[in-house]
């Protein structure tokens, strides 16, 4: 390749490619965001067998966990993979260095969001295929609703991740903040106790958390219903609110 072909590529595309390579080299991000969710589904699906469970709204364990595992992957990438990278970039002056060039460091944020979203998309497809092929879980019947729910959930979670990245002075701080946010959210998503078996009060709280709303909206559309307005609205509010917070709070150094 000659430098002429490089010049044609936009800086953002080049940046995204490099960030993707760095993600591959880092490995940890891919293990949790890409590899772990399908493995979790396979384990739970195998444990649960083919029997529909009355307690789980007449779904198999695998069908119950498909949306949870998808939400897990998106949240993992948004909260535990991306913020430490950006926190380290601030800590090490990578953002500062970029701000001396014609390309603003905001492009680095865009590249990070893009690659993590791409991984989340691949994981989602992988999980849906494994559910369909391995455990007879039907593909989402209300595909449009599923997609809207997924996009809003990703927007909300990545906005929260960017807010963490905006505030964390170091990679370590971002790591800690991400984990502290992630585990309670996963609880409300039903990772340990699926929403169907949550006590009513707990489920009501869960409705207003990003992951609870996301999992229910994904589950509803998987079964052929359009998601509840409440859940979509909750996700949209998180997305808008935290995007505004991230923009307002972000510091380049």
């Amino acid at each position: 390749m000659t430098s002429a072909t490089y010049a044609v590529q936009s800086p953002l595309r080049r940046l995204t490619r490099i960030e993707f390579r760095l993600l591959l080299r880092e490995r940890v991000g891919l293990i949790w965001g890409l590899a772990f969710p399908p493995v979790l589904l396979i384990i739970l699906g195998t444990l649960g067998g083919q029997k529909a469970d009355k307690d789980l709204d007449g779904l198999t364990l695998a069908a119950t966990y498909v949306p949870i595992v998808i939400a897990f992957s998106v949240a993992m990438l948004a909260l535990n993979v991306m913020p430490p990278v950006l926190g380290t970039y601030r800590e090490k002056g990578v953002l500062r260095r970029m701000s001396t060039t014609p390309v603003p460091p905001s492009r680095l944020l865009a590249a990070q969001v893009a690659i993590n979203l791409a991984v989340a998309a691949v994981t989602t497809v992988l999980v849906l295929i494994i559910g369909r092929v391995g455990f007879d879980v039907g593909l989402p019947r209300q595909a449009g609703g599923f997609l809207i729910a997924l996009v809003l959930a990703a927007a909300g979670l990545f906005a929260i991740g960017l807010t963490i990245a905006a505030l964390a002075p170091t990679g370590k701080a971002a790591n800690a903040a991400g984990a502290i946010t992630f585990f309670p959210m996963m609880f409300f998503a039903g990772l340990w106790v699926p929403r169907a078996v949550m006590p009513d009060a707990l489920r009501h709280v869960s409705d207003y958390t990003p992951m609870g709303a996301a999992v229910q909206a994904l589950q509803d559309s998987a079964r052929g219903h359009f998601p509840h307005t409440l859940h979509l609205a909750v996700l949209a509010v998180y997305a808008v609110g935290f995007t505004a917070a991230a923009i307002r709070l972000f510091r380049w150094e």
């Binding site: 430098s3 490089y6 010049a7 590529q9 936009s10 800086p11 080049r14 940046l15 490099i18 390579r21 760095l22 080299r25 880092e26 380290t88 970039y89 090490k92 002056g93 990578v94 500062r96 260095r97 001396t100 060039t101 014609p102 390309v103």
Partner: peptide, 25 residues
């Protein structure tokens, strides 16, 4: 500009960094 305490990602290669930054101009 070369500023104090501005590093690069630990895993980026020398050529990658140069190629990337040259694409900014």
């Amino acid at each position: 500009i070369q500023l104090q305490e501005s590093e690069l990602p630990a895993n980026i290669q020398v050529d990658e960094a140069l190629e990337l930054y040259s694409s900014f101009y």
